[in-house]
């Protein structure tokens, strides 16, 4: 167990960081290169004001018509994304690891809160999977990978919850937790999870075209 832990928390973690940040840089570079080589003129339509207007409307819950039309999806999606970002960063166990390794530290989520919102993520994944299967318009545009991504996202949170409870055999689950989290990070830049990086650009572009050129709302 010690050896395994050393491998996954050491070299594998470093590899994950390298692949993740390399992937993000690669994708941004590819986007920029394509933009400059083939669609440079689009840059002239970019407007900071309308980019921010668009992002603001889409980052605030119920800030757009479609969000107001689908309150359940809005609630689930926002909870999902917020918890997805907050839990890994502010969980005590993770903060302690940062503290051990880099001597940096920040405030942590109180235990019961962390437990609760950790489960929001897999719960939302179940909702998304259910919606994907049940709603014809979503099923029509789904492929098997879409379900795989839901598992990939849910796994680190489920296993993390298991470990937090110190349930029997949690040491093995901990390895699963670390490896699945790494798998998530590694696949992020190279799959459609890359919307985390790209959405800022697509939204800004749509916002700029709609705001500065077309004088209309895009929300």
């Amino acid at each position: 167990m010690h050896e395994l832990y050393m491998i996954v928390s050491g070299p594998m973690m470093w590899a994950t960081c390298v692949v993740f940040s390399g992937g993000v840089i690669y994708q941004l570079g590819r986007l920029l290169r394509l933009l400059l080589r083939k669609e440079r003129s689009l840059l002239s339509y970019m407007s900071l004001r309308y980019s921010l207007r668009s992002i603001a409307h889409w980052i605030i819950p119920f800030g757009t018509l479609n969000m107001r039309r689908n309150p359940l999806i809005t609630l689930v999606s926002f909870s999902f994304h917020i918890c997805l970002l907050i839990v890994p960063v502010f969980l005590t166990a993770h903060v302690v690891l940062w503290e051990e390794a880099w001597n940096i530290s920040w405030s942590c989520l109180p235990g019961p809160v962390a437990d609760g919102i950790t489960l929001v993520v897999p719960a939302a994944c179940i909702f998304f999977a259910w919606r994907r299967l049940r709603r014809p318009e979503v099923r029509f545009v789904s492929d098997p990978a879409d379900f795989m991504f839901l598992v990939l996202v849910a796994l680190p949170f489920l296993s993390g919850f298991y470990c937090c409870r110190h349930w029997p055999g949690y040491e093995v689950v901990m390895i699963v937790h670390i490896v699945s989290g790494q798998a998530l990070l590694v696949s992020l830049p190279f799959t459609r999870l890359a919307h985390m990086i790209l959405v800022w650009f697509t939204r800004s572009y749509m916002g700029s075209e709609f705001g500065a050129v077309r004088h209309a709302r895009d929300y």
């Binding site: 010690h2 832990y5 050393m6 302690v96 503290e99 001597n103 530290s105 470990c163 110190h166 040491e171």
Partner: peptide, 25 residues
Amino acid sequence: ALRRAYHLRCKGCHLDRESGPIMCG
């Protein structure tokens, strides 16, 4: 800091010696 000192002291030694607990529980 104190918390880090404890963790480095205990977990660090356990990892070095490949013996003793290394996970929270």
